[in-house]
């Protein structure tokens, strides 16, 4: 009932014809009834200015091309904004029309990039990838310096070029690492073609390829489903120590003074990418070397 404070939808039900006959009769004899009835009669007599739907549709048709240009504000107000808009447009132009897109990671960083076709690229620390996004559909080429893991959407040929060689695929998951004289490609799914100088190698899933400096290339089989660095661990299998140091330096932004260490020593092992103490300890203790981190937290020297 109207006077019942708990019934907070009474009038809604009345409007809707949702009252029982008894309720309705009772309401009709209520002193307030005729006031509400008048409000409703008045409200129901209201109408909105008519809307010319066809005309509005035509307006849209004629406006479609120069899309949202139309503005209800007077033109004169736009002038100061125009200068700003123009400079912003030019600025944006640089970003949008610059044909090359480049992504760079710094020490200890990782960066996941979705490429224009939906393929994924995850950059490891201290790496740079450049590609042409305008021509991406026809020409999937990425130039890489450092290390990256790729999950490639099926489609046209996908090529990763590095100074050490090219890796080509048609849709798969693989990892490429290329630094100075170190070149490594791991295939996690599908098939990849590795081209390094005169050599051409086809890797199937679970196969790896590596070429260090001028030594001959080697192939091996592995079982991991994705590179360990994705989960913040760097792992090495029979790798000359200098490249292990390089990775430590890239991950932690430190300098390792390798005086007195044979950097050609072959190293097999892993270290975490998120804990410098553990990482240094793991590498150096397995080599039987004492080390210390200098005050600046940036330089590692042998402690003799």
């Amino acid at each position: 009932m109207l006077d019942d404070k708990k019934d907070d939808i009474f009038l809604s039900r009345w409007i809707n014809g949702g009252l029982s006959p008894e309720e309705l009769n009772e309401f009709k004899s209520h002193p307030e009834y005729h006031h509400y009835a008048k409000i409703m009669a008045g409200a129901d007599a209201l109408e909105l200015k008519t809307y010319d739907v066809d005309n509005a549709l035509n307006n849209i048709k004629s406006n479609k091309k120069n899309s949202l240009k139309k503005n209800t504000k007077p033109v004169i107000k736009l002038w100061p904004a125009l200068a700003v808009a123009a400079s912003i447009a030019i600025l944006f132009g640089f970003f949008f029309f610059k044909s090359n897109d480049s992504f760079t990671t710094s020490y200890g960083e990782q960066l996941a990039v979705i490429l224009p076709d939906g393929s994924e690229m995850i950059l490891n620390a201290k790496s740079e990838a450049i590609f042409n996004k305008n021509d991406w559909k026809n020409n999937r080429v990425i130039s890489l310096e450092g290390e990256a893991y790729f999950k490639v959407k099926k489609g046209s040929k996908f090529t990763v070029t590095t100074t050490n060689g090219d890796v080509t695929v048609l849709g798969t998951e693989f990892n490429v690492q290329s630094q100075s004289t170190y070149f490594e490609a791991l295939c996690y799914e599908g098939k990849v073609n590795v081209n390094s100088g005169k050599e051409n190698t086809i890797l199937t899933a679970g196969k790896g390829y590596r070429k260090i400096a001028r030594t001959s290339s080697e192939n091996w089989v592995f079982e991991a489903l994705e590179p360990s660095w994705i989960s913040n661990t760097s792992s090495f299998k029979s790798v000359p120590l200098q490249y292990v140091f390089k990775e430590l330096e890239d991950q932690y932004n430190i300098t390792i003074n390798s005086n007195g260490i044979d950097i050609e020593t072959i190293y097999t092992g892993t270290f975490p990418n998120d804990n410098i103490e553990v990482a240094l300890k793991t590498v150096f203790s397995t080599l039987g070397l004492q080390y210390k981190l200098l005050q600046d937290q940036k330089t590692v020297v042998l402690d003799r």
Partner: peptide, 22 residues
């Protein structure tokens, strides 16, 4: 729907108060 019904009920109460007794 309940929320709408409450708003509608309130709207009528508010209107009634505003308009008074003409």
């Amino acid at each position: 729907v309940k929320a709408i019904e409450k708003l509608m009920h309130k709207a009528l109460l508010t209107l009634r108060k505003k308009i008074g007794n003409i």
